[in-house]
Each structure stands twice: as structure tokens, then as C-alpha cells.
Simulated assay, not measured.
Amino acid sequence: MSSTPPIDLSAIPEDQRDAVLAVLRERDALREANKRLEHLVAELNQAVHGKRSEKLSEDERQLAFEDLETAVAEVETQQNTQTSTGPAPRKPARRNRGNLPKDLPRIKPV
């Protein structure tokens, strides 16, 4: 990856600096999570296709997969907690289905 030059925060209006800093922190956290996941993929490839992969017993192979599953779950949990601390997602607009105005005529099926 190419390194981006540091951002001069003095060039950003004061009312937008907190938002820019939050985005930069999120970017850094995602980069770290990606590095961790790339490492886990490399470990998985080593367990499946490595020199000693054919020598592993079924139990040893299953243990390696379980360790990797645990590590991936930890990374996903960490990502979920980081995204949940951000701004709340917008809720869809509430719709008024089935509650028609009282002045409309009612037609009841027979």
C-alpha cells in the first residue's frame, strides 16, 4: 500500500475536524483489521496447503481450523464494536399501512 501524506488539520474548517479525525481513526482501525485477516488467511493456506499439511491428522487439522475460526470471530466482533460506536444507521421511513383516513369510504368484502 502506498502511504498517504499526513493531513494538515489546520486547513480543514474547525467544525469538520472532528469528523475528519473520526474517519481517519476508522480507516486506521480497518487497516489493522485487514492486516489481521490477511495473516489469518495466510495461516489457513499454510494449514491446508503447507509442506506438513498432508502429515496432519484429522484431529490436528480440525484443531487448526477451530483456532482460525476463533481468531476470525474475534476480529469480526472487534469490527462490529467499532462500527457500532459510529453514527447510528438511519432507520427506514415509517409507513402508514392499513390506517386510512376516517373520511374515506370503507369497502368490506363479502
Rank of each mutant, 00 (worst) to 15 (best):
R17Y: 03
P89E: 08
A71S: 15
L63G: 08
V110G: 14
V110A: 08
P5Q: 05
D18R: 12
I12N: 03
E58A: 12
K102S: 13
V72M: 13
R106A: 13
R95G: 06
E26F: 10
V72T: 07
A71M: 04
K55F: 10
A33Y: 03
E76V: 08
T81A: 12
A71W: 01
G86N: 11
A64P: 02
P6D: 10
E74Q: 14
A93Y: 02
E58D: 14
K91Y: 04
P105K: 05
A11P: 00
R31V: 09
V75M: 03
L68Y: 02
K108S: 11
V23K: 12
R97C: 07
Q62M: 08
L104D: 10
H49K: 09
D18L: 15
A29L: 11
E14M: 04
T83S: 12
P6S: 10
G98L: 04
K51V: 05
E43H: 04
F65K: 10
A42M: 07
G86Y: 07
L30S: 09
K35Y: 12
R94A: 13
L40A: 04
S3L: 14
P87V: 06
L9K: 03
L40Q: 13
R52F: 12
L63K: 09
V20I: 10
H39L: 12
A22Q: 14
Q78W: 15
L37T: 06
E38C: 06
E69D: 15
K108P: 00
N96Y: 03
